[in-house]
């Protein structure tokens, strides 16, 4: 394996940068640019190329953590970043207008990669009053015949990020 890397993806504001920052041993490298569009209400900056973090394994191997840009117009980066990746973490923000549509976008765009590797889906801000319950995400996956792990998580907490990785690794290793 030329490079060991995990990829975090999901819509803008779902917490990809935060999740990488929670476990990276170096300060996360971000390619933030000023946001000029609808994001302005919630975020001043948005990731245009990637976020990057790193964890050194005990044999010196580097586990690289990449975050993709959120907006669909940066889909060119999605395909570049997943090359040679070990697995995918999709972060969804349940306070966005249509989180299930978001899920569909990322599942479809990363379908080949997920099929070759593995995925874990995390729903953040799961208790948001306007967001669908977690059962709706499970129903959606079941309707598509997909048995993927979908979990509620608060990615500001390191333990939750580690739980996602735990699930992903189990899935990669034993599924």
């Amino acid at each position: 394996m030329s490079e060991i890397k995990l990829i975090f993806t999901g819509p803008p504001g779902a917490g990809k940068t935060t999740a990488i920052g929670a476990i990276s041993e170096i300060p996360p490298v971000s390619t933030d640019v000023d946001a000029t569009d609808e994001l302005l209400s919630s975020k001043d900056h948005t990731t245009a190329a990637m976020d990057f973090g790193e964890v050194t394994l005990d044999d010196g191997t580097k586990l690289r953590l990449y975050g993709t840009p959120g907006q669909r117009r940066f889909a060119h980066m999605w395909q570049i970043l997943v090359q040679g990746g070990l697995g995918l973490i999709i972060l969804l923000d349940n306070s966005r207008p249509a989180p299930l549509d978001d899920l569909e976008i990322y599942l479809d765009n990363f379908a080949d990669f997920i099929e070759r590797t593995g995925v874990v889906i995390a729903v953040t801000r799961a208790d948001h009053p306007d967001g669908p319950p977690i059962e709706d995400f499970q129903d959606y996956l079941e309707q598509r015949g997909l048995v993927y792990p979908v979990l509620t998580a608060d990615i500001r907490r390191e333990t939750d990020v580690l739980m996602l990785l735990n699930v992903l690794l189990s899935n990669l290793e034993f599924a």
Binding site: P149, A153, N166, S170, F174, A175
Partner: peptide
């Protein structure tokens, strides 16, 4: 597995992801 349990809301035990993965595919 028909669907994965939401391990984020259950009282987590280390072997759950392992067992889920065994029967996910």
């Amino acid at each position: 597995l028909r669907r994965w349990p939401d391990l984020g809301v259950l009282r987590f035990r280390d072997h759950y992801p392992l067992l889920c993965a065994q029967i996910a595919r």
